[in-house]
Computed example of a mutant assay.
Amino acid sequence: MSTPSLNDLIELGAVSEAQGLQGQVKVRPHSSEPVALLSSKAVWLSLIPRRDAGVSASVEQASLTQYKVKNAKMHSGNVVMALEGISDRDQALALKGARILVARDAFPKADSDSYYWVDLIGCSAVNLQNEELGEVIDVTENGAHGVIAIGDASSKTIKQLVPFVKEVVQNVDLDNKKITLDWQSDW
């Protein structure tokens, strides 16, 4: 398989430690529900700096390495993975700090009213009065629900933080990259 573009890969977690003696790795997932990470048949590992660190990352700089996933399971808030070719603790420890990336097209299909946060980034946000609020530039979780950061994508300036809850989010149209919110522009 050829190395994909970094734009096609989504970072889902990072290797935090070796787990056990047989080469399993403990992955700290970026999501509280790491469905895509648990269901992945293959992952890419990289030690390159994060995209938001101001470094222009390319495939050449990335030195991505693909591993087939033998199994993955949740354990104490982490994902424990067994990767093909990693068979002892020393090999697993050598991967500590590596970013775990998965091809977006390998994610399982989301339910009809569920969304992968990565798909929301870049959507334009409008309110019920059809006023342009900005572009979704980030999505985070505050413990109770998701929060979308709306602002100017070119300058990464956040204008508003909006709760991603059904009372506020009226419609998500991923095909047209548009989210309609019950939200005022001056809130």
Rank of each mutant, 00 (worst) to 15 (best):
L9Q: 10
I10Y: 04
A14R: 10
V15F: 12
V15D: 03
G20R: 03
L21P: 02
L21K: 09
Q22E: 11
G23K: 01
Q24N: 07
V25M: 11
V25T: 03
V25Y: 03
K26L: 14
R28Y: 06
P29A: 05
P29C: 08
P29N: 05
S31C: 06
V35G: 09
L38K: 04
L38T: 08
L38W: 10
K41I: 00
K41D: 00
A42R: 14
A42I: 13
W44H: 15
L45E: 00
L45D: 02
S46V: 02
S46I: 03
P49S: 14
R50D: 06
R51C: 06
R51I: 10
D52Q: 10
A53V: 02
A53M: 10
V55W: 10
V55H: 13
V55P: 06
S56H: 11
A57V: 13
A57L: 15
S58F: 07
V59D: 07
A62M: 11
S63G: 15
T65P: 00
Y67R: 08
Y67Q: 05
Y67H: 15
K70G: 00
N71Q: 15
A72F: 13
H75K: 09
H75A: 07
H75G: 03
S76D: 04
G77T: 09
N78P: 14
N78L: 04
V79I: 08
V79P: 15
V79D: 04
L83F: 13
G85D: 01
G85M: 03
D88E: 02
D90W: 11
Q91G: 01
A92L: 08
L95D: 00
K96Y: 10
K96V: 14
A98C: 09
I100L: 08
V102L: 05
R104S: 12
A106W: 03
A106G: 05
F107Y: 14
P108T: 01
P108H: 03
D111H: 00
S112F: 15
D113C: 02
D113I: 07
D113V: 05
S114K: 06
S114V: 04
Y116W: 10
W117H: 10
I121D: 02
G122L: 12
G122P: 14
C123D: 01
C123S: 05
V126Y: 11
V126G: 00
N127C: 01
N127S: 01
L128W: 08
Q129W: 07
E131S: 09
E131L: 12
E132F: 12
E132S: 11
